[in-house]
């Protein structure tokens, strides 16, 4: 339980820029270090977090915690991931309301954004290798990319569409056999 708390506290503390920036941290802390979830499972949690209400990062934390230690695991992971925000933002709101306009903060952030881009790039490459092996997967990937980038379709609809496509594909494949 303590490990779970520490892992998600770290994830909350070092994630800049929301949900997807958290993926490399989760990969390292939860998949590689503690080996409690597989990469596929984390991806599934992201998919579900995407189409359920609420902040994606928090949804993923609840999911992982629940899987490991049931209800209280979910509660601990959720609390741990929001605790750094709670502490840091309260301090900033109380005494540093001009925090984000300090030059040093802005320089640091510009650098951090580049670092996050590198981390997410690495994760995305891993995901390509593992998840786009079949023709069907590559097709769904391309369609989702086009719908999102070109037609600005909202993620919820893309996720729902992908679920329908998956079920249709699976059913047809079984019928052929």
């Amino acid at each position: 339980m303590w490990n779970l708390f520490v892992a998600f506290f770290k994830i909350g503390l070092f994630t800049f820029g929301g949900g997807y920036a958290m993926l490399p941290m989760i990969q390292r802390e939860i998949v590689e270090k503690q080996k409690v979830c597989t990469e596929e499972e984390v991806l599934d949690y992201y998919a579900i977090g995407q189409c359920t209400p609420g902040v994606i990062a928090v949804n993923v934390a609840t999911f992982v915690g629940y899987k490991l230690k049931g209800f209280w695991g979910g509660a601990v992971a959720t609390f741990a991931v929001i605790l750094p925000s709670l502490l840091i933002i309260t301090v900033i709101a109380a005494c540093l309301s001009s925090f984000s306009s300090y030059p040093a903060v802005q320089h640091a952030l510009a650098g951090i954004r580049v670092a996050v881009a590198v981390l997410v790039f690495r994760t995305v490459c891993q995901l390509y290798k593992k998840n786009l092996r079949s023709f069907f997967a590559a097709l769904v990937f391309l369609l989702a990319l086009i719908f999102s980038l070109v037609f600005n379709v909202r993620s919820v609809y893309i996720v729902v569409g992908a679920i329908v496509a998956g079920i249709l594909f699976g059913t047809v494949r079984r019928a052929k056999k």
């Binding site: 590559a138 980038l149 893309i158 079920i167 594909f169």
Partner: peptide, 26 residues
């Protein structure tokens, strides 16, 4: 079956988020 479609779609959504990160950072 649902996850057969879901996983590549989420990889696509993550790629879109990555492009957004790239756009604002580089």
């Amino acid at each position: 079956d649902a996850f057969l479609g879901l996983r590549p779609a989420v990889v696509a959504l993550i790629s879109v988020a990555f492009l957004e990160v790239l756009k604002t950072s580089l």
